[in-house]
Amino acid sequence: MSNFIIETNKLTKKFGSSKVVNNVNLQVKKGEIYGFLGPNGAGKTTSIRMLLGLARPTNGSVQIFGKDIKKERLSILKKVGSLVEYPSYYGHLTAYENLEAARLLLGATKPRIDEVLAIVRLTKDAKRPVKGFSLGMKQRLGIATALLGNPELLILDEPTNGLDPSGIIEIRELIKSMPKEHGITILISSHLLSEIDQMATQVGIITKGQMIFQDSILKLRAQSTSKIKLTVNDAEAAWKSLLTHGYRTDFNQNKLFIENGSDDNVAEIVKSLVQNNYSIYRVEEERKSLEEIFLELTGLEGGL
């Protein structure tokens, strides 16, 4: 048995001739919050559907808790809570009845319904038909349903979609608390890096159906190398002067950049500029944001 809670092997899904999910090897360890990141249409939902056995892989396999989803779907799903895309609900039923309909199939206890309603703060609205709920309330009901069976694994597909900032923070805190308090493993998908950045311990980045990065969030952050930006009076002349003194910098947009310079290196360059009578207006550190790294990795320029 492997020590992964979720492990896919060359998971592939074709619609017609296009490979929407292409050879994805997803690996999620116990107790992690795994951020499954990718732009719109990257194949996140399609992958998640295959994890839950809702869609059949064209190729490859899915193992959850070390068991094959094809063979042991029911025993796996007993311990998995999920929310796929926008929330599903029965509008004519109350929140309580919605949970009861799911509880019957999960074999959970009745008091558990009140517990999950309290967790997502819907206790007050439990007796109202869900069709009158706001999107955020529906989303919270979806999360309540996912939590109903005391799952060991939560699979949440864009759970903060359509929520206002306070709703997002609330859900985020809820998600962050779960591995600590209940030892739950969580896979959460999003197209927003900032969101994943605030929750996840592991990250998988998928684009055009392919997994292009999978490691800890710390490793992703480490890729955000810094540069020192120098603003001086005559940048081009300063750049040439530095070169003649044996210091290599980049000249760009009338600014000088020092890539990966050590503190001493930066100090020497500044000293050399001062000695050669250049006026230094600013010395700034420029850090590539995670967002930029994400865009670079996914090969998308601009607008996400």
């Binding site: 799903l77 998995v80 999920s82 796929v84 895309e85 599903s88 029965y90 509008g91 199939l105 979806g142």
Partner: peptide, 15 residues
Amino acid sequence: HQTNAWKQLLALPIS
């Protein structure tokens, strides 16, 4: 069909 509840229903431990 109305709210596409099939996916939620079939992600429960039910065949």
